[in-house]
Design a protein around this nucleic acid. Structure first.
Length: 372
DNA sequence: ATGTGC
């Protein structure tokens, strides 16, 4: 394996050969200095997911993929853990895939965002692995760090996973039409144009998660306080070992900006962790989740044989899954994902995290609208 | 992942 590559995973971790091959391929790209695979590394469309890449001079839009700015936002609600009325809450969460009926222009203005064709979709989560999850505390491990974030173990939190919808898609498509998987010189007209579009999508995606949270909180008739928001598909100029590098993160959460959330699948715990240790050697990045184990089509084929759709709408935690799109229900089932505990154990073994707390699902909202 | 593909 190239000395440019590091894979942070134990021998027991299930990492597909194709993902490792994809990581090897990225290390050969012109200007590429280092590539790090995180414990949730898995194959993507040409480029791996769960990885960070540091390059000199060149930037590679293809490594980031279409959902520029996709990430996790966390809000603490004023809903109490001991007063959960599941059926009533599920009934309230309707109409949330429709166009946002609030003031989109005001949201854009507050984030200093220029108009874009994706604006009618602001406030919608989209499909794929995107979700909104209401969670309750499972365990507080580091009370001081937990309190420091303003968190209260009696209160439910809202975790929002979404991105830049059609906006990032359009930016990648434009690049691919002209350059396919090839990169750009960062300091060129096209490079600067991509970076400007990227930065816009990054901000838009954050505004999207904020809008989604306010919609869901309003539907639940709850208030919420912002806790944190971190993208996991992004490109930044970052100093690494004393050199300015273009740091690409694809399914990798920044570990140089305080605590991060690493969610499992909807059937497992979510970890709130503090990055520690030699993060520079991990390109200041951590795993962004459990990582997919089975491809979408394989998940549908395998799980349809074993489980009814309704059985997948409840989890071992007693939580509910709101998802009327049956394909999505099977594609995103917990069985299709790796075990989050193993991902966390690998990060602990590498000395890169300390656990602050764990949360468990109460309600997982996937796209509710029926499309099948 | 996708104002969702043949």
């Amino acid at each position: 394996m190239s000395e440019k590559i590091r894979i942070i995973a134990s021998e027991q971790a299930w990492i597909e050969g194709e993902a490792v091959q994809q990581l090897e391929n990225t290390a050969k790209l012109p200007g590429m200095q280092r590539a790090v695979g995180l414990p949730d590394l898995h194959p993507g469309k040409g480029a791996p997911i769960g990885a960070a890449f540091a390059s000199e001079e060149m930037i590679y839009p293809y490594l980031l993929g279409n959902d520029i700015g996709c990430g996790m936002g966390l809000w603490q609600t004023d809903l109490k853990k001991n007063k959960i009325k599941l059926d009533k809450m599920v009934d309230k969460l309707t109409g949330l895939d429709d166009q946002y009926d609030g003031d989109i222009q005001a949201v854009l203005a507050s984030h200093d965002l220029a108009p874009s064709p994706a604006d009618p979709f602001l406030g919608t989560i989209g499909g794929g692995n995107h979700f909104v999850e209401l969670q309750k505390v499972n365990e507080v491990v580091d009370q001081a760090a937990f309190s420091e974030l303003g968190l209260d173990k009696k209160r439910l939190v809202l975790l929002v996973h979404s991105g830049s919808r059609g906006l990032g898609e359009g930016i990648l498509q434009k690049h691919v039409a002209a350059h396919k998987a090839a990169g750009l010189v960062a300091d060129s007209e096209e490079g600067r144009e991509y970076l400007a579009a990227h930065d816009h999508a990054l901000k838009w995606a954050k505004a999207n998660r904020e809008t989604i949270s306010s919609r869901f909180l309003a539907a639940l008739r709850a208030d919420g306080e912002f806790v944190l928001d971190l993208p996991h598909n992004l490109l930044t100029q970052t100093e690494i070992c004393g050199e300015k590098r273009w740091l690409h993160r694809k399914g990798a959460v920044p570990a140089n900006g305080g605590p991060v959330v690493i969610p499992g699948s909807r059937g497992s715990l979510t970890y709130l962790v503090a990055p520690v240790g030699d993060l520079e050697n991990a390109l200041f990045s951590l795993a962004h989740g459990a990582g997919r184990k089975w491809q979408r089509s394989a998940s549908r084929d395998r799980l349809r044989k074993k489980f009814s759709a309704d059985s997948l709408r409840r989890t071992d935690f007693g939580s509910r899954v709101i998802c009327e799109d049956k394909n999505l229900l099977y594609e995103e089932a917990p069985q299709a994902y790796k075990k989050i505990d193993l991902v966390i154990n690998d990060l602990l073994a590498a000395g890169l995290i300390e656990i602050i707390a764990t949360y468990q699902p109460v309600i997982t909202y996937k796209r509710r609208t029926r499309v099948d």
